[in-house]
């Protein structure tokens, strides 16, 4: 059973939006990545997105492309990603983990065995960037059967005629990609996000998380005030990259620095007023 509904219910009870943080599993190495993952909840992450490294991350900007390359170079693969989730679950039974990535590694692993292993490891949701609703059922159906939410992306280009088809089988939450672009580049205006979230709420009662282009605690606060959660990825991954030495090895203190930044993001998000229109 996914931990996502309980987590959003808790956020609602606390009358605040949530912070969703992203790191790539195994970046820059297994031990550092595990320390970051394990430290996320105490630093203030309400939901964790864990990237599954892939050679060809077509929807990602440079920061997350490089994160994938570092993870792969350090031996990261789908099995080690799932191992990280298992290790995380030994100390945390409540923070939802959503795996995010591209379809080919999952397809190569085998859809049914992947879903079974992910559920057993303690995964709550999947975001597969290159599986739009037209192609998603071959993974979404077995995922749901294992109690894993399949989370769909919506974008500024997803018009009203298309939205019902996207939201029809969505569960967990709806991820709104706030710009037309790749991760870690442009940022949407508050007005544009407000209008987009209002449009989504006309079509769904699921919580709405907004991501892409959120780079600072202030921006996270502004976006979170307009939705149920704000997603921060590239900015966190860039902090991590800044803590690497010339050989790509983590400098002492890297984990603390990154988690401190997550703490600042969390304080920003928690300072945001809960929108009165929220479900």
């Amino acid at each position: 059973m996914s931990r996502l509904p309980a987590r959003f219910a808790k956020l609602k009870a606390e009358r605040r939006p949530g912070l969703v943080t992203f790191i790539t599993a195994g970046d820059p190495d297994r031990a550092t990545s595990q320390a970051l993952l394990d430290g996320m909840p105490a630093a203030g992450a309400d939901i964790i997105e864990l990237g599954m490294p892939f050679t060809d991350p077509m929807a990602d900007g440079l920061a997350i492309q490089h994160a994938s390359q570092r993870a792969l170079k350090a031996g990261g693969c789908l099995s080690t990603t799932l191992d990280m989730v298992r290790a995380f679950r030994r100390a945390d039974a409540e923070t939802p983990i959503v795996l995010m990535g591209y379809y080919n590694p999952v397809y190569a692993h085998g859809v049914d065995s992947f879903c079974a292993e992910a559920a057993e490891a303690g995964v709550d949701g999947l975001i597969i960037v290159d599986l739009p609703p037209e192609e998603a059922e071959e993974l979404a159906a077995p995922a749901r059967a294992q109690g894993i939410d399949f989370i769909f992306l919506t974008a500024p280009t997803t018009d009203d005629a298309r939205l019902p088809a996207v939201l029809d089988r969505a569960s967990g939450f709806v991820y709104y990609v706030s710009i037309t672009g790749v991760t870690g580049t442009a940022s949407a205006s508050g007005d544009a996000i407000k209008a987009a979230v209002a449009r989504l709420r006309r079509h769904t009662t699921l919580p709405v998380a907004v991501g892409f282009g959120i780079k600072s605690p202030e921006a996270a606060a502004e976006v979170a005030a307009l939705a149920d959660a704000a997603v921060v990825g590239s900015a966190i991954v860039s902090r991590l990259a800044a803590g690497l030495d010339a050989e790509g090895k983590p400098r002492p203190g890297l984990v603390d620095e990154v988690l401190q930044f997550v703490g600042e993001l969390a304080r920003g998000v928690r300072s945001a007023a809960r929108p009165s229109t929220a479900a």
């Binding site: 929807a59 290159d130 037209e134 769909f152 997803t158 298309r162």
Partner: peptide, 19 residues
């Protein structure tokens, strides 16, 4: 839907689907 048997299809991010 653009399939040749199991091959082909439209495996792109949602942002590109409408395009």
């Amino acid at each position: 839907n653009g399939h040749f048997g199991i091959f082909g299809g439209r495996y792109v991010a949602e942002t590109l689907m409408p395009l």
